[in-house]
């Protein structure tokens, strides 16, 4: 039980000559809500993309659920149990909400070409189970009424929720959210908070990047702060809030001053 779900040690990532991340080490425990904050350009999204396999790390170690990954591809990590949402919402725009979530089931289902052509009993069962599970998840995030609506015709808040439902459909161990509250008003943010707490209560570990410091502090069990591609602080929200390095980073004060 003491083994963390996700463990990064000494992770580095360069783009050309530019170092976006260096020597980042952190771990996320099972069942916690873990927040990642930092000023603009601190490397949050880069780190997030490393964790979800979109970027390949240049240095360091990446362990997830007791396994080590060298250059994991996104679909491989989704299979392993990491699901994500995107900062600038990336739904399958011309497919319905239901289909979007059913695509999330892809990784937990098996039917291949022959299954599709023969539509045998196991395929039919699988298909029915996928549809049901997708409906259930849409109901869970509160947009089941819109199941036949194209993703691009949903409202902004509904699209955010659909992304979460789609991610949950992959039966993740770790749900990684990239600025889930971006563009939301206070009521929407509050209901998002309730939803995330509920997701955690079902045993899913949650990690999120967020600009809304209030949301992070009110929601997360532990928070890490990135600045200039390095982790400058980590701990429970109150601790982090009082960390002088964090204050300096956010206020733009030079460390020496």
């Amino acid at each position: 039980m003491t083994v963390p779900l996700l463990e990064l040690s000494g992770v580095g990532k360069q783009f050309g000559g530019l170092s976006a991340l260096s020597e980042v080490s952190l771990h996320i425990k099972r069942g916690e809500i873990y927040g990642l904050i930092g000023p603009n350009g601190a490397g949050k999204t880069t780190l997030f993309n490393v964790i979800t396999g979109l970027y390949q790390l240049n240095a360091g170690e990446f362990n997830f659920n007791g396994r080590s990954y060298q250059t994991p591809k996104p679909h491989f990590l989704a299979q392993a149990g990491i699901a994500r949402t995107f900062q600038n919402i990336r739904l399958f725009a011309n497919l319905t909400a239901l289909e979007n979530v059913m695509i999330g089931r892809h990784v937990r289902t098996k039917a291949g070409v022959f299954g599709a052509l023969l539509r045998n009993k196991s395929t039919r069962n699988e298909e029915r189970a996928s549809t049901e599970r997708a409906r259930e998840l849409l109901r869970y995030v509160g947009i089941v009424k819109a199941h036949q609506t194209l993703a691009k015709n949903l409202s902004y808040g509904e699209q955010r929720r659909l992304e979460i439902a789609r991610a949950l459909a992959t039966d993740p161990l770790l749900l990684a959210l990239d600025e889930p509250a971006a563009g939301m008003n206070a009521t929407e943010t509050e209901s998002l908070k309730v939803l995330l707490q509920d997701i955690r209560s079902t045993g899913i570990t949650v990690m999120l990047i967020e600009h809304d410091v209030k949301l992070i502090m009110g929601l997360c069990d532990r928070v890490a702060v990135l600045d200039y591609g390095r982790k400058i602080a980590e701990g429970v929200p109150d601790e982090v809030r009082q960390n002088p390095a964090v204050i300096a980073a956010y206020l733009g004060v030079d460390d020496a001053a």
Partner: peptide, 17 residues
């Protein structure tokens, strides 16, 4: 559905496994 997911957004599709 997987094909259509790729058509719509390849990065999102691969992130969905």
């Amino acid at each position: 559905r997987a094909w259509m997911a790729i058509r719509e957004d390849e990065i999102a599709a691969s992130s969905m496994g």
